[in-house]
């Protein structure tokens, strides 16, 4: 009877404890990573390969998604506007939506799957096979070797890939407008430039940078806290993708509230 009465408190206590521990683990990952920035001799030579893996290798998937998003945006805009709004507003919708919302968010979500899973699985496997312990015994700070190059590469390459994706989305929207909507290039460009502000691009870059930071940090976090062999690696990978995707959507709203 007493045990049943105390059950909610036990539940609250144990969940509170694990949440505090989780926050502590996050705090220590972030402070250790900031401290590890001074070990340029360790992460400096690892940055270039990570820029290639996280950025260059992600370009095809980002461009693929952007191409079809641009086509759909142009067609849906035309469907919505026909008979009510001048057709050159297709350019407005394609441009604004690709730059400010779908370019950064869809690229972020695609890269959360690709990069978040990759980082968590790689570091998680290293954890369960004692490779991270081996790094420490060779006097390498693990955060400098594993976290810093991945996070820096994410922060640098997510905006770069996003800009390419935005360019591709607008291009595919333009081609669709020409081929399927009987629009001319000057019409599309008129719409594209009508409400364009340079701030829109900065907004996209700020969002993409924050997505890069979150996806790589979350991947590293779950990788470092992997336990229990292959099953544990699978669990960490799933968590990394789910949590970073959720955080992308939360950050998307956060930047909109803060900057718009």
């Amino acid at each position: 009877m007493t045990t049943r009465l105390l059950a909610p408190f036990t539940w609250l206590g144990s969940h509170g404890l694990s949440m505090t521990q989780g926050l502590g683990n996050w705090g220590s990952l972030i402070t250790d990573t900031v401290r590890a920035l001074r070990h340029v001799d360790v992460w400096g030579r690892l940055l270039l390969p990570q820029l290639a893996r996280i950025g260059v290798d992600s370009i095809p998937i980002a461009l693929f998604i952007a191409t079809f998003t641009g086509i759909v945006l142009a067609l849906q805009a035309s469907y919505t506007f026909t008979g009510a709004i001048p057709l050159y507003f297709v350019g407005v919708l394609v441009g604004k939506t690709m730059i400010m919302e779908l370019g950064p968010v869809l690229t972020g979500l695609a890269l959360a799957g690709r990069i978040g899973a990759n980082v968590a699985a790689e570091i998680g496997s290293m954890k369960v096979t004692e490779q991270i312990d081996a790094l420490e015994t060779l006097a390498y700070p693990p955060n400098a070797y594993l976290v810093v190059p991945r996070v820096l590469a994410g922060v640098i390459m997510f905006p770069a890939v996003t800009i390419l994706a935005i360019g591709m989305g607008i291009t595919s929207g333009w081609v669709t407008s020409l081929q399927l909507l009987d629009m001319s290039t000057p019409q599309f460009v008129r719409g594209l430039t009508l409400f364009f502000f340079p701030f829109d691009v900065w907004f996209a870059i700020i969002k993409a940078t924050s997505f890069g930071l979150v996806v790589t940090l979350v991947g590293c976090f779950y990788g470092f806290h992997t336990t229990g062999g292959a099953e544990g690696v699978g669990r960490s990978t799933t968590k990394a993708v789910v949590v970073s995707s959720m955080l992308i959507l939360v950050l998307d709203a956060f930047w909109a509230v803060l900057l718009l």
């Binding site: 490779q131 081996a134 420490e136 015994t137 006097a139």
Partner: peptide, 14 residues
């Protein structure tokens, strides 16, 4: 740690 070499059970090669 530079004075101590550690041979891991499953080698822990990168």
């Amino acid at each position: 740690r530079r004075k101590v070499g550690y041979v891991f059970q499953l080698a822990a090669l990168f």
